[in-house]
Design a protein around this nucleic acid. Structure first.
Ligand SMILES: [Zn+2]
Ligand SMILES: [Zn+2]
Ligand SMILES: [Zn+2]
Ligand SMILES: [Zn+2]
Lengths: 132, 132
DNA sequence: TTGAAATATGTTATATTATAACAAAGCGTA
DNA sequence: TACGCTTTGTTATAATATAACATATTTCAA
């Protein structure tokens, strides 16, 4: 019996590929325009693929930008614990992969002792290039 | 010479008041519908007020929900460092005010030594009520 | 006091992001 | 085969946000 965990459908492969190739976060409709030549016709196909890829941890959504980036963590099995740095000037986005940070946040308890099973953290500042 | 830092215009006051009264995050268009009786006619007025209130730290945007909450930190002068807990079930949102956490994140440096002047953190889980 | 600059508001239209609803096709397997 | 399940296709529309430009109000210095 074969595992289906990693199976990607045709549309999902197409969408993943274009996001992986991109150097910057992609918007859903810019993905749509790019893949129309490959036969994907409408928003639903794109959004379905995005939803699935997010669940699989292959991509992440940058909430403050409504844009999508490929996971750089060697296929994030921890898509429930994400952190990014975002340049205010050039909009470059980098996925932060810092064990100490993720440990700190995963173990974080609030005043009431509540713990959480998921978080998303977005840092903003100027990237090296833009700081010069 | 009077300070203008805290001055709110009429529309800004109206929008802030309704967000402060609400027990849950409000969407921009639900704010619009509520304030139409007070003379605010269109989306631009609402979005302008929201933008201003965010800059002043009076409200925050919950990015994962496209919704807005009043600051509970006694008027957050640190609107550049925000953290929230969000219930996956009832969608309740609570602003986290934890000095250790904010210190940790404000001082965080990534691998390249880069530091950030702003962050937004959203935790997800089940609130006390929903956990029962 | 007056008039230019800055800020706030009003108004219409439109852009952008995302989902609903339902039909059809493909695939695994009993 | 025929049934359930997943994926895809298609049309329409909902929800979120901004552009562009006109008007009004406030500020403040000449
Ligand atoms: Zn990742
Ligand atoms: Zn940059
Ligand atoms: Zn606050
Ligand atoms: Zn709850």
């Amino acid at each position: 019996m074969t595992q289906k965990i990693d199976f990607l459908s045709k549309n999902q492969q197409i969408v993943l590929e274009i996001i992986e190739k991109a150097k910057e976060p992609l918007k859903a409709y810019s993905i749509l325009f790019s893949v129309q030549k490959k036969g994907i016709k409408g928003p639903p196909q794109v959004y379905r693929a995005l939803d699935r890829l997010i669940k699989l941890g292959k991509i992440h959504k940058i909430e403050s930008k409504n844009a999508f980036v490929a996971c750089k963590n060697d296929n994030c099995t921890i898509s429930n614990a994400t952190a990014f740095s975002i340049c205010d000037n050039c909009e470059m986005v980098t996925e932060i992969s810092n064990p100490k940070l993720s440990k700190y946040l995963t173990n974080f308890q609030d005043e009431t002792g509540m713990r959480y099973n998921k978080y998303n953290l977005e840092f903003f500042g100027l990237c090296k290039k833009c700081k010069k």
